[in-house]
Write a protein that binds this DNA or RNA. Structure first.
Lengths: 141, 141
DNA sequence: TATTGTTATACTCTATAACTATA
DNA sequence: TATAGTTATAGAGTATAACAATA
């Protein structure tokens, strides 16, 4: 019984601090947060279909299509049909997208990286590193 | 040098999983997430001014006023001027708000609490418990 | 004049429903 | 018919600017 009570409290505190972190990240802005998310995934994993991107972000394909539409209009991604199955659209970073991502990373992700470096001790950073895959497991549950 | 690279990677992974968690929380919905946030703070801390609520959530007072307007229209919070300084508005939970919060907690926060209970070992839960105040420190930095 | 709060407006982010095109 | 994608629409969530009221 006290276990459950503690867990509920942890859940509440986690939810609250998540919201605050997202707002903080947005404030350290320049680019919309979901744009950076998609661009950086394309950089790490390479060209992807709309569906694959949506699944990776746990987002509806329609939402991802909308985001990709915005990125395409800005010339940051390039979309072309898969030559084999022309229903599928392969999304890839353009040079402009790659450049922007690099510049942007030095700002926004810069803030979070810097905060982790400056505000936490080495031991505390280890706690954070171990916590991230646990959060991922919660998302996937 | 490898330290900074690792930190950047941790920051990126953290940002990504944050977004996913927020979407998941929203999906386990019923109530808008920011409504729950404000209601549960009022329950924990008691009646508050608009400014105090905004500061606590690291949000603009205007945004908080907007949220409070919605909550007020739904009869979940009660707003009345401070008798001493009538510029200040004291916001308090109504009975309806308190009831709704209890019902809601059994759903949404229910999901997160349950996921923490079922998906994590006792040791892993401890990592999470220790990580939350670290995240808070990052927000405040 | 300074502080507290609100309203108007717009932008970010995501979802549902309805549609098109290819398989 | 099933699958991949998009468009239209709406709602959640937050910010900036302009304003009103009280101190």
């Amino acid at each position: 019984m006290p276990l459950t009570a503690d867990l509920t409290r942890t859940a509440t505190e986690l939810r609250i601090v998540l919201g605050q972190l997202v707002r903080r990240l947005r404030a350290e802005n320049a680019l919309p947060l979901h744009h950076v998310t998609v661009l950086s995934r394309l950089e790490r994993v390479g060209p992807q279909t709309t569906s694959a991107l949506a699944a990776a972000e746990r987002m509806r394909p329609q939402s991802m299509a909308h985001t990709l539409g915005e990125l395409g209009k800005e010339g940051l991604v390039d979309r072309r049909p898969d030559p084999i199955d022309r229903r599928q659209i392969i999304v890839a970073l353009t040079d402009a997208g790659r450049e922007l991502l690099t510049r942007e990373r030095n700002r926004r992700e810069g803030w979070l990286t810097q905060a982790i470096a400056e505000q936490l001790t080495a031991d505390e950073r280890q706690v954070l590193v171990r916590a991230v895959p646990l959060l991922r497991r919660l998302v996937d549950s």
